[in-house]
Design a protein around this nucleic acid. Structure first.
Lengths: 199, 199
DNA sequence: TAGCCTCGATTGAACGTTCTGTCAAGAGAG
DNA sequence: CTCTCTTGACAGAACGTTCAATCGAGGCTA
């Protein structure tokens, strides 16, 4: 049709779909070629040396980099009441980290340490590191009581996970109808009440 | 060697190892037969109709049922300071739900809704339901301030997840050396301080 | 006791299919 | 004519699965 412009990108897109839907082993060169509407699967080997390399390229081209904390310095002085919901919403929104990407990454990460590390470093690790720095700073400012920020950073990130996992993979988990925004609000509230200086 | 006693169990064990390590597609009938030290892969078909059925049997025989909340009634009146750490430790201990099982289940659940549902119903769903009931009860007792327990139940479960995920799949996430027990203590502390009646 | 039969369990060989990856030939543009 | 891209056919291996043959233990008959 249209995009004979960039065959490479066309193949990468199709490979992403297939890998996300069926996993590395489940997706086949043939099915990828089919999705990419190629006349022959052989064409894939013109652009990529083998299936493994294609997979790696898909990963590195699709794993999103968390932009919410790209430049953390201006965020450090924001009050937690403002910053935490912001992080949380970026979390839930996942502008680019959609279901398919997460499916792809999580599905492979449980068995491939390199993928796991790539994933952590690209997103959760950064958010976690930022949160540790931020929370530490807030403690110094006296806005939060002293505590182990390694733990509270994990805790805040984690509080939102069941809701997110429910929406993405485990719908049974969120059958009680709680919305993202409601959950975020309550979570931030509990978290901050628990870390108030006077508590 | 020893266990020509129960071939069926022997095959199930091997299949569990293989499926957990390589996934449904990655594990082969031949590799399962090899792990089970069978002379021929054909023997598997004497005990199971096909690979899919073998996989289902492995799942239902290995997915653990959470026992910590098996009979919730006597737990309802325990004070949160006592019950939450208990839940948390059961969480971290995972007497039967070891890394391999979680690898197996999570790896497949992201792409197979039936597996996802089976997983949720067997464990996280039960814990979540229990927590909702328990927290509601504690609110009624006046030990916790009124709030949306759907959200706090998720939040408490979630707080522990990054630590657990770090230990199991994403070691990069827990490189800062925080121990399970430290994290549990801080998390419970923050959670309960945040939900104290007078806050 | 000896010979035969039965039956669940096991085996190696083979089936058809599907997989990744290769290759030589060709199309199209400059 | 040359170079980049595309093609269908194909090789070789691995896949899940089937099958006929075989094994050994136990029962039946003489």
């Amino acid at each position: 049709m249209a995009e004979e412009l960039d065959r490479r990108a066309q193949i990468l897109d199709a490979a992403f779909e297939e890998f996300a839907a069926k996993g590395f082993k489940g997706a086949t060169i043939k099915s990828i070629a089919g999705t990419a509407r190629l006349q022959s699967p052989a064409l894939i080997y013109w652009y990529f040396p083998d299936k493994e390399a294609l997979f790696r390229e898909v990963l590195s081209s699709r794993i999103p980099v968390v932009r919410a904390v790209a430049d953390p310095t201006p965020l450090l002085d924001l009050p937690p009441e403002e910053l935490l919901p912001r992080i949380g919403r970026a979390y839930f929104a996942f502008e680019q980290l959609d279901t398919r990407t997460l499916r792809l990454v999580v599905g492979e990460a449980v068995r491939r340490p390199e993928v796991a590390e790539m994933f952590v470093k690209s997103g959760p690790g950064k958010v976690l590191d930022f949160l540790k720095t931020y929370l530490e700073h807030q403690v110094e400012l006296g806005r939060l009581r002293p505590h182990d920020v390694r733990s509270s950073a994990r805790a805040f990130m984690g509080m939102l996970i069941p809701q997110l996992a429910g929406r993405l993979f485990l719908p049974t988990l969120t059958e009680d109808g709680l919305t993202d925004e409601e959950h975020l609000k309550t979570s931030v509230n509990v978290f901050l009440s628990g870390l108030r200086p006077d508590s």
